[in-house]
């Protein structure tokens, strides 16, 4: 088992390196500091969502609401700063808090009422985006943030985009959580066999709830970075990000059925999608449509990754049937 997913990540790493070499060979100015910083900036928010989507999917769940929650948190952040005149960094804390609360709503409905995560987060997907639109009357945007705040999304620290440092911190934390703590162990056990985990005395409901609350809180953090990068807070922030995040996670070798997967796989998945999108748009010199192109690619890649995962799993033969006597 372990070898199988290790191998998956190795393949992904090779693909990523090949991608980079290919684009560098045929594209213009691909491996320049500018372009690399560009790729990093454009993928930090989706990367953050993918990181925290990993534990959710490991438990056998899914969270479709993170993109909408990002939008709601962005709007909240804008309002706290623009209308209540909170300092940006305090408002950012507020946005993260709102994200955590959104995650709590998901967690409560899933663990308390035992509703399927899919339909719950589909409902909150609509609810959170709708709240964001309602709060801003659909179109209102908050702009003119102070330069000190915009630096988060647009400046460098030690030669690296500032938000990349935030990403690294979160990535290390999530990696440790999933791979080095009992919580991570529990996520997997729940994903493989929720009943088995309960019989082993693991706190199943609490762990599932934690995964969704974490996803919500980090969606809030991603919202703050998003606002800083695009310099405005608007209700349409993060549309479609849930899909990009899920794609990166699945591409990174995490099974959509739970249990199997890794955070480093997710990181490779994020990088592979980002490089592919950026590289293709450069080769085809249609930078204007890079968003559409990467959307199509993300969707197609997700299906291919899922199909490949299922076909590979099927190959070694179905699981043995339970016996009886």
């Amino acid at each position: 088992m372990k070898k199988l997913w290790l191998r998956h990540e190795m393949i992904l790493l090779v693909v990523l390196v090949l991608e980079i070499l290919l684009f560098n060979a045929i594209g213009r100015r691909f491996l320049t500091a500018d372009n690399v910083a560009n790729i990093v900036r454009q993928s930090v928010e989706i990367g953050l969502l993918a990181l925290v989507m990993t534990p959710v999917i490991l438990t056998g769940g899914i969270d479709l609401s993170v993109g909408s929650l990002l939008g709601l948190c962005a709007v909240t952040f804008g309002m706290l700063w623009g209308e209540l005149h909170w300092p940006p960094w305090v408002a950012a804390t507020g946005a993260v808090g709102v994200g955590a609360m959104g995650g709590c709503v998901n967690a409560a409905l899933i663990t308390r009422l035992r509703l399927p995560p899919l339909i719950v987060t589909l409902g909150t997907f609509s609810l959170f985006r709708g709240l964001a639109e309602a709060l801003t009357s659909g179109t209102k945007a908050y702009t003119n943030f102070p330069a000190s705040f915009l630096a988060l999304g647009n400046s460098f620290f030690l030669g690296v985009p500032v938000q990349a440092w935030v990403f690294v911190v979160v990535a290390v934390a999530v990696w440790l959580l999933v791979h080095r703590t009992t919580a991570g162990r529990a996520f997997r056990a729940i994903g493989f066999a929720p009943e088995g985990a309960r019989f082993a005395g693991l706190p199943v409901e609490r762990r599932i709830a934690q995964a969704y609350v974490l996803a919500g809180a980090v969606a809030g953090l991603a919202a703050v970075i998003f606002v800083s990068r695009v310099t405005e807070a608007r209700a349409n922030a993060g549309i479609g990000y849930e899909l990009a995040a899920i794609t990166a996670v699945v591409l990174g070798g995490t099974s959509i059925f739970g249990g199997v997967g890794s955070v480093h796989g997710t990181l490779l998945g994020v990088a592979a999608v980002a490089v592919l999108g950026n590289g293709l748009s450069r080769i085809l010199s249609i930078t204007a449509f890079s968003r559409e192109l990467s959307g199509i690619l993300t969707g197609a890649l997700l299906i291919v990754a899922l199909a490949a995962g299922t076909l590979l799993r099927r190959a070694p033969g179905a699981k043995g049937r339970g016996r009886s006597g």
Partner: peptide, 8 residues
């Protein structure tokens, strides 16, 4: 189903 998590 309950005693051992087979995949782990």
């Amino acid at each position: 189903r309950h005693g051992v998590i087979l995949e782990m």
